[in-house]
Design a protein around this nucleic acid. Structure first.
Lengths: 192, 192
DNA sequence: CACTATAGTGAACTATGCTTCCGATTGTCA
DNA sequence: TGACAATCGGAAGCATAGTTCACTATAGTG
């Protein structure tokens, strides 16, 4: 709503388009490494532009973070759609998807932050993309359910919650090994 | 370590003792309701003391949050020890414990925040208490394992991670129902 | 009851980091 | 190429919230 730009969008000037892309690129890197606490100034510096330029392209810092989270959800959804094309054993396909997504989340502190619970606001603003992801995941689950290889009572939102939970263990708390934990969780999802 | 006060502690003056208790009480309430973002000023106001007084008792805001988290871990550990005394079916005892702890976490936004991944620093400073909790949980698991009612490959840290994960789903993200999720998780822990 | 060490108070200070603003630049188009 | 609108830059402006400190109040003690 707040970002549904209406006024007929004229094409961006060449330099503006270039800068917008650079800013997103740097933001991806900076927030991935330092989490949502990284500063706009850092993003700007890394992109080789002034802060003002960042603000020309993104209303607020939050808007930038939201855009990045949306990107990630879109990526996850795209992967899920791909998975849907595959003809292997449905549970195995799902498992592979989860592992890949976990790996992606593990290398992005901002995503962990958003999924792990803090960053409510940001999550909310990416709801459409998240819903889309849940929808596709639902199809994958349905298929595995039909094959009888996944617990019958698992729903798409459970997968979402488990992945969010997994993200909350990625921060490096001593004794916590998310890979091991993911192995367990995946095995727990299997049909008995 | 950082808080192992050495200089022979003389007993607090009566008003100081009273205020310290009031501050903790208010902090529990305020942080539980508004999370770790609540302000020291709010804690002070609620406690009916000046900010300076809060700082007389707690070096920093973080120190206060750490103390509260420690309290929670001590509570969880105490419950776990109680559970160890009980003679019911070991898995059922563990299940009951998890449900009660989840409920406690659900009513405390600061705990959710700390467990869900943000608040690394705070978590680290409560490590001793957390380790103690993991240790006792280990005993409960061992018992259930002997009874053959829990998955043989579950470890105490897995329970910890699952609970942290659960906390990350409590923030009220649309479509996420932590109670339902807990039911699933608990059932997934059962021996096949 | 007087004295003093301990404790309390809260306005002021400070640090951090997001956001704005306006003069300088630069693409675009006639 | 000239003109101008779009864009950029980054110092300065603000807002927030944690923390300090100089002064006042009071519990404990002889």
């Amino acid at each position: 709503m707040a970002d549904t730009v209406i006024h007929t969008e004229r094409p961006l000037r060449a330099d503006a388009r270039r800068n917008r892309e650079r800013i997103l690129e740097s933001a991806r890197a900076v927030f991935a490494e330092y989490g949502a606490n990284a500063q706009i100034d850092d993003v700007a510096r890394q992109a080789g532009v002034g802060v003002g330029t960042v603000y020309r392209h993104f209303e607020t810092k939050e808007a930038l973070l939201v855009e990045l989270l949306r990107e990630k959800f879109r990526l996850f959804a795209a992967r899920a759609r791909e998975a849907l094309e595959q003809h292997g054993e449905p549970f195995a396909v799902l498992e592979d998807l989860l592992r890949r997504n976990a790996q992606t989340a593990a290398s992005d502190a901002a995503v962990q932050h958003a999924l792990a619970g803090a960053g409510e606001n940001i999550w909310m603003q990416a709801e459409a993309e998240q819903q889309e992801l849940v929808a596709v995941t639902g199809l994958l689950i349905a298929r595995a359910r039909r094959a009888g290889t996944i617990r019958q009572d698992v729903e798409a939102n459970d997968i979402a919650m488990l992945m969010c939970g997994l993200c909350s263990t990625m921060g490096g708390k001593p004794g916590f090994d998310w890979r091991r934990h993911l192995d367990l969780v995946i095995d727990m999802l299997r049909a008995r």
